[in-house]
Design a protein around this nucleic acid. Sequence first.
DNA 1: CGTTAGATCTCCT
DNA 2: GGAGATCTAACGT
Length: 190
Amino acid sequence: MNRLTAAFFARSVHVVAPELVGATLLVGGVGGTIVEVEAYDRADPASHSFRGPSPRNRAMFGPPGHAYVYRSYGIHWCLNLVCGSEEGAGEAVLVRALEPTAGLAAMAARRGLAEPRLLCAGPGRLTQALGVTGAHDGIPLDAPPFELRPRPAPLPVVAVPRIGISVAVERPWRHALAGSRFVSRPLRPA
DNA sequence: CGTTAGATCTCCT
DNA sequence: GGAGATCTAACGT
């Protein structure tokens, strides 16, 4: 099966992020099609990497093609895919929403909710549905339990401002599949 | 529909 | 001490 390897992620996060829309993300065989991501880079005040390495963000400064998983608001886990043309670039893509296609029953059980539209619509919901936790922090994306497959073909992707940040709010680094009903929040029309 | 509060981790001042 | 790449339930309109 065709897989996304480290070479795919070893480029600028701003090139990789839109190409991930339409890609397939599975964790332990459970997941679906990526419909929404956000890009964060080293010079971005909204990025965890902006102020340099810390115990939490260590993986974000590691090799591209690995996972960066952090705890959000003390409650949720959020999954990032580390990018960058060189190790230590401090770039990553936050995976914000999937269209569920595989393991719907497992996701519903973990989420305590069966409505497909709400299983993976948001970074915290997505990690809960896929069983992603801090145990996945720093591990490679081209080996089990992860399975990432490229988009079959280019798709209509819209770039809009990111969600939930209070600085650099105007940067259009939220990339989403146009017209998808599985996004975390509606795509604000320009 | 809209707004609000609470969960309580990790980092910064 | 306070804010944050979030989510949910509870409440007012």
